Amino acid sequence: MTDDAVPERLAAELRALPMPVLLDVLGRVLPERDEGFPGSRTALVLAAVTANAEVPGLTMEVVAWPGDDPASEEGLTRIGSCRRCGFEVTSTAKHAFCPMCRSACYLT
C-alpha cells in the first residue's frame, strides 16, 4: 500500500457516512487536537460556510458536536449561539457542545 492509499481509503469511508454519523466521528477526534500555546487555546473545528449570490460576503457558523439527543437526519439544521463564548453554532441536534469552549448549547 502506498502512503496515500490509507488516507484515501479513510477519506472514502468518511464521505460515505451520513451527516450525523460523520459529525459524531469528527466530534470524537477534533476537540482532542488542541494545539494551543501556554495561555491560549487553538482548536480544530468544522465550520458551515454559506455564500449567497444576492448577499455580499460569507456567513460562517462553527459546527457544534451533537449531545445526548438523537441527531437529525436532515443535516445541519439547528442553529444558535454559544452562551459562554458567543460563537454562532450549528448542529444536527438541539443539544450540542461548542467546539471552542465545550460548553452545552441549546439550539433551535
Rank of each mutant, 00 (worst) to 15 (best):
D34R: 12
L44G: 11
L107Q: 03
L30F: 09
G36P: 02
C82S: 01
V6D: 10
G67E: 01
A5V: 12
C101L: 06
P70Y: 04
V89T: 07
S72Y: 01
R102K: 14
P18A: 09
C85K: 02
A53S: 15
E73R: 13
A11K: 05
P66V: 04
M19I: 14
L58W: 08
A71N: 02
F87I: 13
P31K: 03
F97H: 08
A43Q: 13
A47K: 09
E61N: 13
P31I: 06
R33S: 14
M60D: 06
L76W: 00
R41C: 08
M19G: 08
V55E: 11
A64F: 02
N52S: 12
C101F: 01
A11H: 10
C101Y: 03
T2N: 13
A16I: 00
V45L: 06
P56E: 11
T50D: 15
V62A: 09
P31S: 09
T90L: 01
D34V: 10
L76E: 04
C98W: 04
T77R: 06
P66K: 03
E32N: 14
H95W: 06
D3N: 14
R84H: 12
P7E: 07
S91L: 02
D24W: 10
E8S: 15
P31A: 08
G36N: 02
R78L: 09
A43F: 10
G67L: 02
F87H: 15
V55D: 05
C82W: 02
L14M: 11
V63E: 04
P70N: 01
D34F: 09
V45E: 08
L76T: 00
A53D: 12
S91Q: 01
E35H: 12
E88I: 00
P18H: 08
L107V: 01
T2H: 08
E73W: 05
L10R: 12
C82F: 04
C82D: 00
V89G: 03
R33Q: 15
E13A: 15
G36D: 05
E74I: 00
W65V: 09
L30M: 07
E13I: 11
A5Q: 13
A43N: 13
M19F: 07
A16Q: 05
A47H: 05
P18Y: 09
P20Q: 01
L10H: 11
C85Q: 00
I79K: 15
V21F: 04
N52V: 15
E74V: 00
L76C: 04
T50Y: 13
M100G: 09
G57H: 08
T59F: 04
V45S: 11
V49I: 14
E32M: 13
V55H: 09
G80A: 00
C105V: 08
T90E: 03
P38C: 09
A64D: 03
T77E: 05
D4G: 01
F87D: 14
S91P: 06
D69F: 03
E73T: 09
R84F: 07
F97C: 00
P38R: 12
V55R: 14
K94N: 12
D4K: 11
A11R: 10
